[in-house]
Simulated assay, not measured.
Amino acid sequence: MSHAAPTDREDTTGPPPARPAPEQAEWDDWRWHMRKRVNTVEKAREWINLTEGEERAIAGVAGRYRWSITPYYASLMDPDDPLCPVRQQAVPAADELLEFPGAEVDPVGDTLYRRTNRVVHKYPDRVILLVTEACPVYCRHCTRKFHTTDLQGSYFRDDEGGAYDEDLRYISEHPEIRDVLLTGGDPLSYQDGRLEEIVAGLRAIPSVEIIRIGSRFPVLLPQRITEELCTMLSRYHPVWLNTHFNHPKEITPESAAAVDRLLRHGIPVGNQTVLLRGINDDVATMRRLMTELLRIRVRPYYLYHCDNVTGVAHFMTSVEKGWEIMEGLQGHITGFGVPQYVLTTKIGKIPVSRPSFTETPDGGLLLRNFRGQELHVDATTHPITETDAR
Score class of each variant (00 low, 15 high):
Asn369Val: 13
Asp260Pro: 01
Arg87Glu: 12
Arg9Ile: 11
Trp240Gly: 05
Ser234Thr: 12
Leu98Asn: 00
Pro175Cys: 13
Thr111Arg: 12
Ala93Leu: 08
Gly109Asp: 12
Asp167Tyr: 13
Arg35Ser: 08
Asp167Trp: 05
Tyr65Ser: 01
Glu96Trp: 01
Met232Ala: 04
Ser2Asp: 04
Glu386Val: 15
Asp362Met: 06
Leu275Pro: 01
Leu293Ser: 02
Gly14Tyr: 15
Arg169Tyr: 10
Ser154Asn: 03
Gly60Ala: 10
Gly363Glu: 13
Gly185Tyr: 05
Lys145Met: 08
Tyr155Cys: 07
His33Gln: 09
Tyr236His: 08
Tyr73Gly: 02
Phe336Tyr: 11
Ala103Pro: 00
Pro383Leu: 15
Asp167Gly: 06
Trp27Ala: 05
Val199Trp: 07
Thr183Asn: 04
Gly335Trp: 11
Asp78Ala: 13
Ala94Val: 03
Leu303Asp: 00
Gly331Gln: 12
Cys230Val: 02
Tyr190His: 00
Cys135Pro: 00
Gly278Tyr: 09
Glu104Tyr: 09
Tyr170Gln: 02
Leu262Met: 08
Thr183Val: 08
Ala74Ser: 10
Ile333Lys: 11
Glu228Phe: 07
Glu359Trp: 15
Ser189Glu: 03
Tyr170Cys: 13
Glu173Leu: 06
Leu289Lys: 01
Met286Ser: 00
Trp30Gln: 00
Leu263Asn: 13
Ile177Lys: 04
His382Glu: 15
Ile213Trp: 09
Gln152Asn: 14
Met77Pro: 04
Ala103Cys: 02
Pro101Asp: 01
Ala93Asn: 05
Asp186Arg: 01
Thr12Asp: 13
Ile225Glu: 00
Glu228Asn: 12
